[in-house]
Amino acid sequence: MGATFDLWKLTKWTLFYLLVAVIVVVSVFPFYYAILTSFKSGTDLFRINYWPDSFSLNNYYNVLNSGSFPRNLLNSVFVSAVTVLLALFLAVTASFALSRVRFRGRGLLLLTILGVSMFPQMAVLAGLFELIRFLGIYNTPWALIFSYTIFTLPFTVWVLTTFMRELPVEIEEAAIVDGATPWVIITRVFLPLMWPALVTTGLLAFIGAWNEFLFALTFTSNNDTRTVPVAIALLSGNTQYEIPWGNIMAASVIVTVPLVVLVLIFQRKIVSGLTAGGVKG
């Protein structure tokens, strides 16, 4: 009996780790290949290998010294961070109203907010461009923060509304009995419980803003105000049709690593959340 149990347990354990391994390999392999490629140059790029056989940091050196890549990296950090903070701030309070207070037309309002994200990006390009010039923020980071709101805000509002709605009524009632105002309920009662949702939403929105390309290309006209995806697209070979794979891959590695670090920092927050005994559902 004990032996079969152990066998079952072992099988389960093996299968589980196999699954983890498959997930990790599938996710990471293309990135691994990108890292390999980033160490290569010239005709080597067209040759296939699975292990690093040449190791040169030349591409990284090129990228970091080309034009204003470090500056672009800073721009990206600033734009994405401000966009996300702004969106989260507006969305947390709004989602309280949308999830915990009943009023007529709530469903329609939510659908309208969602509707803003239903237009293809290039369709709003012309209108946004006019608006941005009208506001006089063309070619500044604010143009990007402004335009990114169009897709981050509906997303954060919807996700936070969904999660906030799931919080048990009893918690709120207890707070109301204690005489807490809505603001206090949000900041003191809900927010601590919402960490996984907040961090996840913020992270996903951050990546969304970090990777945006079309707006960033259209609303800036200067290497110093451009963001990383545009900078990568502008990395060029020596001649018109040449694609500098080595440099592009090096740049991609450089921009992906901060995000991975960000996840590692915030991942404890992703898993905290409601713990046993904290709340009775």
Binding site: S221, S236, G237, N238, T239, Q240, E242
Partner: peptide, 12 residues
Amino acid sequence: LSIVSGDTGTGL
């Protein structure tokens, strides 16, 4: 003046 160019690498 500003000149916009899709030129690359050594061309730029």
